[in-house]
Design a protein around this nucleic acid. Structure first.
Lengths: 208, 208
DNA sequence: CAGATGGGTCAACGGCTGTAGAGTGAATCG
DNA sequence: CGATTCACTCTACAGCCGTTGACCCATCTG
């Protein structure tokens, strides 16, 4: 693939082809999904033999398990406050899918409705696990349901913007998305049935 | 399948097997997706020969095109007012996916990320077409983007509740979903930058 | 009743898929 | 340096898939 295949130690060759396989798999799983991705196509894009993919990852399922994963860091969400959550969650989403290594996450999203493992992973590791953390930020009743609904809205935004490419959503700038979506998320963080912090009702008096 | 295959006129037999094929196809496309659904499995569930499926629908693509479609009626949304929209849109979604013939719609949703035709159909016919109508309800700037974001949030709710089955969202009652999600949708119908119609019940005198 | 029609079945083809096993040659090591 | 390891390739298998064409036989038509 690159220049010299010579003068490479064995473990270097191993790591290099391993990375090439994984990268090709992430791209193909993200582009056309699990079923339409063939081992042969992955191998061709990685510039190696199909059988090598099996030796490295055991099976197509194993390859998918390694390639499709949520690459966002949960830490930033965890350290958000109830106040900053809408902004931070949106930023996280936009950065993840517009950053350099979005493929693994797109691969997970692309297949979450048709590949049982991907669906389970998205539900359990991304939506539920995050939910458990986000729930701690939320006061008032229905914290768990509200946390999951926050995930649902963010998921809807991600899908329409990056996978379905619904025109206006896909073309919108970050500022517009923040301006329009933050109040949406806030409606779940501070639902009408819950008085926003014990403070006064709602009058102008805003402080940070 | 049913009792008597005898004493049926030819066109009756035709219509009957046609309906059986379509129903089986809707179910399988909804359950396991396009790729994992085989003509043979559809035929087996319909109780007929695989070749008959081809004679009736031409190809697997043709069968899918007939089976996966949005069965909700756009009329109710169209006749909503800006005020009633959140409630009506939610009701529409819940009724569609908890009614008797949800399979065709689930089939469309299930495959919208991996089947190019399904994705295009969901985007163009459901999200965009509805958007064009909903946009008319919305006053203020960014009407198109806000309309599409409304679709995105509803899509996220539908996917997490009916396909991914995220626990709390899937188990929630209609009343809880209405109570929590209506304010969310309202944040897009009446974004903070737009004065909600000549103020009425809202707490007095808010201005920006 | 005899021929035409068409819904339905049967068997098969060609292609593609994931996967396995034997083999090769260069890097590694005693 | 000789033996061994191991990343890599080649070839092939077995199975499943969408699709097709020939063939039945109950229904329709004259």
């Amino acid at each position: 693939m690159t220049a010299d295949d010579e003068s490479l130690t064995r473990s270097e060759r191993r790591r290099r082809s391993d990375a090439a396989i994984l990268k090709a798999a992430e791209q193909l799983f993200a582009e056309v999904g699990f079923e339409r991705t063939t081992i042969r196509a992955v191998a061709a894009r990685a510039g190696i033999d199909p059988a090598l993919v099996m030796q490295h990852y055991g099976s197509k399922q194993g390859l998918f398990a390694a390639a499709a994963r949520w690459t966002g860091d949960h830490q930033r969400i965890l350290s958000a406050t109830s106040d900053s959550f809408p902004r931070v969650a949106l930023d996280d989403l936009l950065e993840l899918f517009e950053g350099g290594d979005r493929e693994a996450a797109v691969a997970l999203l692309r297949n979450c409705l048709t590949h049982p493992g991907a669906g389970r992973q998205l539900r359990d590791e991304v939506l539920c696990e995050r939910t458990a953390a986000v729930r701690a930020l939320l006061v008032g009743p229905d914290a768990e349901l509200r946390a999951e609904l926050l995930g649902a809205c963010l998921l809807g935004l991600g899908l329409t913007r990056y996978l379905l490419e619904v025109p206006a959503v896909a073309a919108a700038g970050h500022d517009d998305l923040h301006r329009l979506m933050e109040p949406v998320l806030r409606a779940l963080v501070d639902p009408p049935s819950v008085q926003p912090p014990p403070a006064a009702d709602q009058p102008p008096a805003q402080q940070d």
